[in-house]
């Protein structure tokens, strides 16, 4: 059975200017042992997608408007609140972007791991302590015993992120959501964390949903990739296909903005402009305002996500073959 199946997810926010849809008809699935990466710029809706899966859409104002999130076949959107308390932190765990602020400053490291074990696995305090120390060792701490009684401010960012991962792994989650887990860290520490995630997903056979804007991380870790833009999926493919045959101009733009060490490119290319705000979307294709190939059709009609190669879909008239690149 598919581990996670997100179907037509729509998440909305109520703002002063009306209801805005920040996640628009998003569907994807993650299998056990598989890593799916969601890629996109800030504001593309990727973090809100992950918070929707966790059931942690910011309140008040935010809500899942429609769609299904099936975890091993059972829908989390329609599940009662009580059931979600059992699932969050146990079956689905999350590692956040900001390791510096994601741990509670007034509780010890050990306390913050052990409380999850006590709550979900009903361990005694002493058993939880032993298991917490075991988890700390597993995420690579040599002096786990002494760390147990230390406070977050005594640790570096990379160490704190490893503690966050230890917390997330404490109940052997079926699905681990990692929201930009390495963004705030040094490059060398990033490599350690990625390595850790890869090893752990293999050990536990968990599915990983990786939210990132770093294509290097995607290449390193992901099996499947979803590219999001302005709340929609614009391209979906296996990682090798995406890197070798990017279909959507946005994906191509992202690829081109990655600095290369081997080429003789003098300047970094960038995609001009910003992601449109969800309350001021263009009428046609949402990327049309920034797309180098945009034509009249793109401005008037919104393309749909369609299969363009085997195992690869894109939301683009160009990729569909309905329009062609103008000779430049």
């Amino acid at each position: 059975m598919t581990l996670l199946d997100v179907k037509n997810l729509c998440t909305e926010f109520k703002s002063k200017r009306g209801v805005v849809r920040v996640v628009d008809d998003v569907s994807f699935s993650v299998e056990r042992g598989e890593t799916l990466a969601i890629v996109g710029e800030s504001g593309s809706g990727k973090s809100m997608t992950s918070l929707s899966i966790m059931g942690l859409v910011p309140q008040p104002g935010g809500r899942i408007a429609s769609g299904q999130i099936l975890l091993e076949g059972s829908d989390l959107v329609s599940a009662p609140k009580e059931a979600l308390y059992q699932i969050r932190g146990a079956d689905i765990a999350m590692v956040f972007q900001e390791p510096m602020t994601s741990l509670n400053p007034v509780l010890t490291i050990g306390d913050q791991i052990a409380e999850v074990l006590i709550y979900h696995k009903h361990l005694s305090r002493s058993a939880a302590r032993l298991e917490s120390i075991e988890l700390l060792k597993r995420v690579g701490f040599a002096r786990a015993e002494s760390l147990y009684d230390e406070y977050p401010h005594q640790l570096s960012g990379g160490m704190r992120q490893r503690v966050m991962i230890a917390i997330a792994l404490s109940c052997n989650p079926k699905l681990l959501i990692a929201d930009e887990p390495t963004t705030a860290l040094d490059v060398t520490v990033q490599a350690q964390i990625l390595d850790l995630l890869r090893r752990l997903s293999a050990d536990y056979d968990s599915g990983i949903l990786l939210i990132t804007h770093d294509l290097g991380v995607v290449a390193e870790l992901a099996d499947q990739v979803v590219v999001m833009y302005a709340g929609q999926i614009v391209e979906q493919a296996a990682v090798a296909d995406l890197f070798d045959y990017p279909q959507h101009p946005y994906t191509q733009g992202l690829m081109a903005s990655v600095p290369r060490l081997d080429g003789d490119v003098k300047r970094l290319t960038s995609i001009a402009g910003n992601v449109p705000s969800p309350d001021a979307l263009p009428r046609g294709c949402r990327f049309s305002t920034r797309c180098p190939h945009a034509q009249a059709l793109c401005v008037e009609q919104a393309p749909e996500l369609k299969p363009v190669r085997s195992g690869q879909s894109a939301r683009c008239f160009l990729a569909e073959g309905r329009i062609f690149k103008e000779a430049s």
Partner: peptide, 23 residues
Amino acid sequence: DYIRTARAKGFRESKVVMKHGFR
């Protein structure tokens, strides 16, 4: 952020607010 972390652990609101928020 650590309040969000506490929610992600599956704790009920009362525990989130009292154990992680209040102190």
